[in-house]
Design a protein around this nucleic acid. Structure first.
Lengths: 224, 224
DNA sequence: TGTTAATGGATAGTGATACTGTCCGCTCGT
DNA sequence: ACGAGCGGACAGTATCACTATCCATTAACA
């Protein structure tokens, strides 16, 4: 497969493919001459993964590189690879020198062990979650971490399924890739569903109290 | 309050405050002289909102401006303001001219009406969700939209609480602001919890099957 | 009352990011 | 034989979110 064919097969422009090659996101093709290289299906797959990390996950190139490195590191166990990937995916990290946040981190840590979850101590989700709680409180949301247990319960169910599905894959790389894109896509799906539920809830609370009897509006499926 | 005091009170540099003023994110202070203006608590609050939209939501300035415009538009009902805000928050929108995506959009639309959700036809979440389904399928995830009903059920519960909480606020602007930051923060919280659940699930499946009896590892809370 | 520091406003510059364009000498396909 | 396409190098571009500098003015303190 020549670079023009790779471009056609992946939907990524030649210029961008060259850029990804330069940035080390994509392995060079097999050189067949000084100005000729051969690309294969693995390159198409890799490009799809790269584009998904960028488009769905919104990851900058540097993070994509880190994720791919974790995916490709064959020397780690599947579980350690998942951990690396979670770390590489990253999120906006807070300044942990803030007293309010370190306090919230303890709260989060206690809740995690209370649930029986085994989490690496350097998991980025812990300070991230703590910072989010602090943000809510700054806006006077009366939030305690126990209120998140409902979310955590369903997350547990989904996570068990997803991990089992990934572990059933034939080869390690595919398993890790499956986890990566599953993580990113389901996070977005969860968010979009949440927005739909909010809009529906808002509509439910809006329509009956307003008692608009305009003939242009009729509520066909409005009830539960 | 002078600009230096506003800066101190909000934690935003003077240069950035001037930038937000220029970009129309922040209302000018009350001019008391050619080179003097007076800022108040509303400016501090607004800066906190702006920074949260940027830091938590990762919104670009243009989107922040659109969200703030929706928040400030007093001529809309609360429900319509929520709709505007959801639209302004936005997400990465797909090319809807793709046949695969329009097909998935029908699927999403049917599922939504099947749930009895009343959603505006131009809600950005619909194409976004459709694109995410297509992405999953491109990676061979055997996904049907009904699998998302569990997520949707808990989202319904949370959304009802959140909307009721926001509607109970004294003034309209605060209510809309509450919805905005609640939406963004809870989306991140949901995502972080999901990552923790994945790591915990991975640990559960890893530790027992590997049967590593190394003395350096012991499982204190590993069970459910 | 003088002087110094800060202010609002305007405009230019910066650094990071993710490409995109151009050039080159080479070589594959016809 | 020869033109389109190739890999590789490198410079250029667009956008974004600030940041720095300048200016005339004015507030605040000595």
């Amino acid at each position: 497969m020549k670079i023009s064919e790779l471009s056609a097969a992946s939907g990524v422009t030649i210029a961008s493919i060259k850029y990804y090659l330069r940035e080390g996101l994509l392995a060079p093709g097999v050189a067949t001459a000084a100005n000729q290289a051969d690309y294969g299906g693995a390159h198409v797959d890799r490009l799809r993964l790269i584009r998904s990390l960028i488009d769905v996950g919104g990851l900058p190139i540097a993070r994509v590189r880190a994720v791919l490195a974790a995916v490709d590191d064959e020397s780690t166990t599947l579980h350690d690879a998942f951990g690396s990937v979670m770390h590489s995916l990253g999120t906006t990290q807070p300044h942990t020198d803030d007293a309010e946040i370190t306090e919230a981190m303890t709260e989060v840590g206690d809740w995690i062990s209370g649930r029986g979850w085994v989490i690496k101590p350097n998991a980025p989700a812990v300070p991230a979650l703590a910072a989010l709680l602090v943000t809510l409180r700054r806006f006077d949301f009366p939030i305690s971490i126990e209120m998140l247990s409902g979310m955590a319960d369903i997350a547990d169910e989904n996570a068990a399924d997803e991990v089992a599905y990934a572990r059933a894959m034939s080869d390690r790389t595919t398993a890790v890739e499956t986890m990566v894109i599953g993580t990113l896509v389901f996070e977005r799906i969860q968010a979009e569903i949440r927005r739909l539920a909010l809009e529906a809830a808002s509509a439910r609370l809006d329509t009956p109290t307003k008692s608009r009897r305009s003939s242009t509006r009729h509520r066909s499926h409005a009830g539960a």
